[in-house]
Computed example of a mutant assay.
Amino acid sequence: MSRSHHFHVDHGAHSITVNVGPGRTGEIELLVNGKVVAHREEHEPGTTVLEGVLPEEPAHPFRIMVRQPHLVPTPPRCTWEMDGVEYVMPERYSP
């Protein structure tokens, strides 16, 4: 049985969280400081891109890439890109 995946990173005074629903096509939501700023009802295997903005002066845009393998049933991988640099987002595990 599939489970949901949760990725999180703190950047300065901001928190960025990505929730990926269960299954290979579940919904994806992007939260900044606990508020949903982007959402996809479903996604295909491959890479799904979501865009967000950190609420600071000046506003700071970033992208989230959720990579879901095409053939191999492995967990998704999540990275975030800001200022042209891509970072791996660690997965948060719930008991």
Score class of each variant (00 low, 15 high):
Ala59Tyr: 06
Arg77Asp: 13
Arg67Trp: 02
Glu81Thr: 14
Tyr87His: 15
Gly23Asp: 03
Ala38Ser: 12
Met65Asn: 04
Pro76Gln: 04
Thr79Glu: 07
His43Tyr: 04
Pro55Ile: 07
Val49His: 10
Arg40Leu: 14
Leu71Cys: 06
Cys78Phe: 08
Gly23Ile: 02
Pro22Lys: 02
Phe7Glu: 01
Leu50Gly: 02
Ala13Arg: 15
Glu57Met: 05
Ile64Lys: 00
Gly23Tyr: 06
His14Pro: 10
Phe62Cys: 07
Asn19Val: 07
Gly21Pro: 00
Pro55Val: 08
Asp83Pro: 00
Pro75Met: 08
Ile28Asp: 01
Thr47Gly: 00
Ile28Trp: 00
His39Met: 06
Glu81Lys: 08
Gly34Ser: 05
Gly52Asp: 09
Arg3Asn: 13
His39Asn: 09
Glu42Val: 03
Pro95Thr: 06
Thr48Gly: 02
Val85Arg: 13
Met1Cys: 04
Asn33Glu: 06
Glu29Thr: 02
Arg40Asp: 05
Val20Asn: 00
Arg77Thr: 15
Pro61Arg: 12
Val66His: 00
Asn19Gly: 05
Val66Ser: 01
Ala59Gly: 06
Glu27Asn: 14
His6Glu: 12
Pro58Thr: 10
Leu54Cys: 04
Arg63Glu: 14
Glu41His: 05
Glu41Ala: 03
Pro58Asn: 03
Val20Cys: 03
Arg24Gln: 08
Ser4Lys: 11
Thr17Gly: 05
Thr79Lys: 12
Pro45Tyr: 06
Cys78Ile: 03
Glu81Ala: 03
Ala59Pro: 01
Tyr93Trp: 13
His43Gly: 10
Arg24Asp: 01
Thr47Tyr: 09
Ser4Arg: 14
His8Glu: 14
Met89Thr: 04
Trp80Ile: 06
Gly12Ile: 11
Pro58Arg: 04
Ala13Leu: 14
Pro73Ile: 01
Cys78Glu: 09
Glu27Trp: 09
Ser2Glu: 12
Val36Met: 09
Thr79Ile: 09
Ser15Glu: 10
Ile64Asp: 02
Thr25Ala: 11
Phe62Tyr: 12
Glu27Phe: 13
Leu71Pro: 02
Glu29Gly: 02
Val66Ala: 01
Pro45Met: 01
Pro75Cys: 05
Tyr93Pro: 00
His5Ser: 11
Trp80Lys: 01
His5Thr: 01
Phe7Asn: 08
Val49Gln: 12
Thr74Asn: 13
Arg24Ala: 00
